[in-house]
């Protein structure tokens, strides 16, 4: 949990090894032409590690081998063709990738797939189907709780959890506990109405 910087002094020393080009970065470095180097670490840089994992996805046992860097979201979308979970930011800012891990709402974009090893993953595809909708899915249809629909899988997964966590007691509480899911079409009042409708059915 110690999120300290790695040893940056090492990085800057590294930066002096080789001249000729300026350092590169996520989006290429804002560099003056007086070329300070950005050579890669010549010491042993780790190589890509691929590990076998077992996941229980929507009740199905799946075995696959993943790059340790792959997020659960990318594995769902790229490897398992479960594209219901959406990438809206890739940095835990929008909630469109929300899935349930062992029943807990979780951002799949900030979860490494290896961390989901042995856990039960529920995605929107596993929640219900067109002819067997989950009450939350039905409530979203009934209350027009979406427009473009892109944030909807995350909203629905979050809505279910909002109720199971016990945070759907009032409109104000629903609003607060649904605030981790951005909706740019701004269907918010309809989403609150949908959560209320589903709450009635889920709590029976």
């Amino acid at each position: 949990m110690a999120d300290r910087s790695p040893s940056f002094d090492q990085v800057s020393r590294r930066g002096l090894i080789k001249g000729g080009v300026a350092g590169a970065a996520v989006t290429s470095v804002q560099a003056k032409a007086q070329v300070r180097g950005g050579a890669e670490n010549t010491a042993a840089e780790p190589t890509v590690q691929r590990v076998p994992i077992t996941l229980d996805i929507n009740g199905q046992h799946r075995e696959l081998t993943v790059d340790t860097r792959s997020t659960l979201l990318d594995v769902l979308r790229h490897d398992l063709e479960l594209t219901g979970s959406k990438k809206g930011c890739d940095h835990g800012q929008c909630g469109a990738c929300t899935v349930h891990l062992d029943g807990t709402r979780t951002l799949s974009c900030l979860t490494l797939a290896v961390q989901a090893e042995g856990k039960a993953v529920t995605t929107i595809e596993g929640l219900g189907s067109p002819d067997n909708l989950h009450p939350m899915q039905r409530a979203f249809v009934d209350n027009d709780a979406f427009q473009c629909g892109y944030c909807t899988p995350g909203q629905i997964m979050s809505g279910v959890a909002c109720i199971t966590e016990g945070h759907a007691g009032s409109d104000a509480e629903i609003r607060e506990y649904m605030s981790g899911n951005l909706c740019r079409c701004a269907a918010y009042p309809n989403i609150v109405a949908a959560v209320k409708q589903a709450r009635g059915e889920m709590e029976g």
């Binding site: 300026a22 970065a25 560099a31 950005g38």
Partner: peptide, 19 residues
């Protein structure tokens, strides 16, 4: 071949500018 490799390579592409 993979998203991760493409992103990693972006960290390693060296582009120098005059600004």
């Amino acid at each position: 071949d993979t998203f991760e490799a493409a992103r990693e390579a972006s960290f390693k592409l060296k582009i120098a500018y005059t600004e």
